[in-house]
Amino acid sequence: MNPLIQTLQEAFPEKVEAVEVSNYPTVKIAAADLVAIMQYLKDEQNFDYLANLCSIDYPEEDAFEIVYFLHSLKEREKRIQVKVRTAHNRPEVPSITAVYPGANWQEREEYDLMGITFTDHPNLVRVLLPDNFEGHPLRKDFKGVNVKP
């Protein structure tokens, strides 16, 4: 067990689930705790750099997963992957732009392509696709614009 995840579990008892899936130490948390845990990681654990943010569609599990990759520029070897799940019919996750401003466009991109609403985002509009575009192309059930069913 990674000591970092242990301290995280001690700080947020029963809210942090450790999983081993990738080359990053990974925790799964609930969307409601996201901002608090991110703030804790930034303030107490020196994770000052949001490297990447992306989302995955799990139609078979009826969920979206949003993945955050954090790094620390102060303690260079530290890294963590944070996963958050949200329901498929009403995908809503709190925005972390207040903690990491750099999440701004990345969250907009996920809103644009995957259709996940980030609450409290300062400017949640489409970033890559035109504003009048219908649908969210990265969803697995997206059928394309001109394709007739």
Binding site: V21, A51, C54, I56, F69
Partner: peptide, 27 residues
């Protein structure tokens, strides 16, 4: 799944790949 990053010419260039066991990536 893997998040792999290199120092690209413009900055941190990363690829996040998630497999679903088939020959094509899930994400």
């Amino acid at each position: 799944e893997v998040y792999y990053r290199i120092e690209g010419a413009k900055g941190e260039l990363g690829f996040y790949i998630l497999s679903d066991g088939t020959e094509k990536p899930k994400r």
